[in-house]
Design a protein around this nucleic acid. Structure first.
Length: 108
DNA sequence: GTGGTGACGTATA
DNA sequence: GTATACGCCACCA
């Protein structure tokens, strides 16, 4: 059956919405959940479109494998993402998540 | 229909 | 641990 591209996006939104508060996930992990390990870039692309997705997606909880807020550029303000993360209890320094290796959320 | 780009990751040296 | 090269899939011009 032909999986509509929207289905792929919808799957990304669903996973991102499952990210618990105070926890962050990575594009590669999400891609693996979708069996699209090689499509990590598409995860970020999908999130960029998630801005108009229903319901809204906490894309600020998704960072790259290095814990760097590479997505802040896509938010209304480059500091908005960091503020949101700090608001969730996630410490961010120099656009990088502290203890990232400890708060990185992964699906079982 | 073709080419280029992108909120990335893994592999190799 | 750091640096460089390549690959991946989807969207836009």
């Amino acid at each position: 059956m032909e999986k509509n591209r929207q289905d792929f996006y919808k799957a990304v939104y669903d996973i991102v919405r499952q990210i618990p508060e105070g926890r962050v996930s990575t594009y590669g992990d999400i891609a693996k959940m979708l069996n699209k390990e090689g499509a990590a870039r598409q995860i970020g692309y999908a999130l960029s479109r998630a801005r108009v997705a229903h319901p809204p997606v906490p894309a600020h909880r998704v960072v790259n494998g290095k814990g760097v807020l590479s997505a802040k550029q896509a938010f209304a303000s480059p500091t908005l993402m960091q503020e949101l993360l700090e608001n969730e209890g996630v410490r961010v320094k120099d656009d990088k998540v502290l203890n990232f290796h400890k708060i990185c959320w992964r699906a079982t």
